[in-house]
Design a protein around this nucleic acid. Sequence first.
DNA 1: CTGACGGGTGTTATCGCTAACATCATCGGT
DNA 2: ACCGATGATGTTAGCGATAACACCCGTCAG
Lengths: 337, 337
Amino acid sequence: MDQKTTRDPAMTDVARLAGVSHQTVSRVLNDHPNVREQTRLRVRAAIKELGYRPNRAARALVTGKTQLIGVVAQNSTLYGPASLLSAFEEAAGEAGFAVSVGRVKVLDRESIAAAVERHRDQRVAGIVVIAPNSSAADALADVPADLPLVTVDGDPDRPTPLVTVDQGVGAYDATTHLLQAGHETVWHVSGPTDWFDAAGRVQGWRRALEMHNAEVPPVMAADWSAASGYKAGQMLARMPEVTAVFASNDHLALGVLRAMHERGRRVPHDVSVVGFDDVPEAAYFIPPLTTVRPDFAAVARETLGLLLEQVSEGESAQSRRTIAPVLVQRESVAPPA
Amino acid sequence: MDQKTTRDPAMTDVARLAGVSHQTVSRVLNDHPNVREQTRLRVRAAIKELGYRPNRAARALVTGKTQLIGVVAQNSTLYGPASLLSAFEEAAGEAGFAVSVGRVKVLDRESIAAAVERHRDQRVAGIVVIAPNSSAADALADVPADLPLVTVDGDPDRPTPLVTVDQGVGAYDATTHLLQAGHETVWHVSGPTDWFDAAGRVQGWRRALEMHNAEVPPVMAADWSAASGYKAGQMLARMPEVTAVFASNDHLALGVLRAMHERGRRVPHDVSVVGFDDVPEAAYFIPPLTTVRPDFAAVARETLGLLLEQVSEGESAQSRRTIAPVLVQRESVAPPA
DNA sequence: CTGACGGGTGTTATCGCTAACATCATCGGT
DNA sequence: ACCGATGATGTTAGCGATAACACCCGTCAG
């Protein structure tokens, strides 16, 4: 009964108990310098005794600022985006920010604009958009410039602040690794071409081939699914000259492995395969998959840092940060037979 | 310049433009019945013209309520929890609620309590805890009863409102499917035993065996990883009497597949395997995996419903809801050789 | 000795909204 | 023609915090 009726303690309740004014309580809470140590302790004690917790709505009302960060992400369980999101939530939480996630079914202009609007309604301090393809990146043109915004995995050709895994370097390393194992060239099964991640990996792959004067075979375009990797793999498996494949992610690689297996082409004896992402189960594919591991936690940290810079400095720092991934060698690569 | 100085329009600005009082604007916004249609239109027009958006902080301050739901989840990319979270965020978004995610590194009492506190600081309307193991469930004892709370994948033996996939039925179906293919018994590679999901699947498996008078072999305990599935699989592969395995999730099953493969035991010819979760790539394992598919979207919907009931009725409806999964048949099951 | 300075504290106004009450037509029933 | 009910609107008082300013009191330079 009592519990229902009694309202949460407010700042004035604390003030009364500590024998000071509510403003002094506010000063203690905000670590203002001009408070006597003794007073500070009394107030702290009163806060604790009452179980007082500041009302964020009241604070937000008067300051016009919130401690909320909005994230717009696609409603998918793709390993990359999911890891990124999870890492970002953790990083933001540790920095004292709450994260409000706006999921979007498809990454089109309209949905993203709507999600951004919902976040603005909430008066978020800033927004992070995981914008891995061009339609998502296009949608950002609609976002008013007064709102701090960072894109992750977004369009490298846009001036928006951006944090991303260095796809080019990862793909370059993977391809070079295969070439150095002795393969004449390396085939590539790509993710959807409108994804920047996929595009960046294609570029890195091509650059590595050109650097080593290897022939550049046609790109096998796919989506990110094991299904499409399987389809591409079926074609590759029929071509005897294919001895090395770099797949744009681990699930594509999984599909390729299966296609090779069905066709009787042994990995890595007949064909070498490298993936990208290092999903947790990649070490248990048949055979264990050599792949490229991005550091999602680092991406998350940089993203948060960039966003908070914008929030505090009010400047649209036109910066971008890139995180280099590392090659993880397992058992899916060998010299050509 | 102007843009920086001019503050966002407030209700009084709209009122002035529409030639009414701010209270009338409030009435229009909240769909109060007693507003003349003509007035309503004038106000709507003014809102649009100014690009007015209500200040949630001010509203929350006066009503004492927010449109925010807190979610506590582990910082993992395990397929089940990640799918659940994603589905919940979407469902809540569609219902007009913002979702604040508090990630936790480990599911121990202290971390969860801290995450819940952070959410209470934000004055969330209710909390969802994805509490898949006993330490997580224990932590909920600390949560004050005055806060609407729903657990997902939590402890079936606790009175807390709970929504969960019907693990027992799924495991029962999977096991029965193997028995009906002609196997004498079915071995089980289990997830961590302190996870309710894993425990429920063990029970369903055992029930099915007992129902068919099959011998109940010892449980092979593992964690959720492909690595541990592989280890369990190595043991099973050495035992010729093992002809059917039910793994507690698809990644464990993947590990088992690999172990069988290495030992030269063909799946499904020599050994049949069934998983749980239906991860997107399960159809591209070697061979395509027969598995059990939970409906995460349904779980999310029910969770939201249960939570909103509590929020509006203030009652701790002691209810729980269970979503039955379905068996997806692919090519990893065959009659024993 | 005095006035300027600054640390510690209190007072008051204000943020943008909703709740509660007040006001004023309008209208149907007697 | 009068009256209470009802509908449409306005007025006022907070919600719980911070900001801005006022105030008191020592300390110290002139």
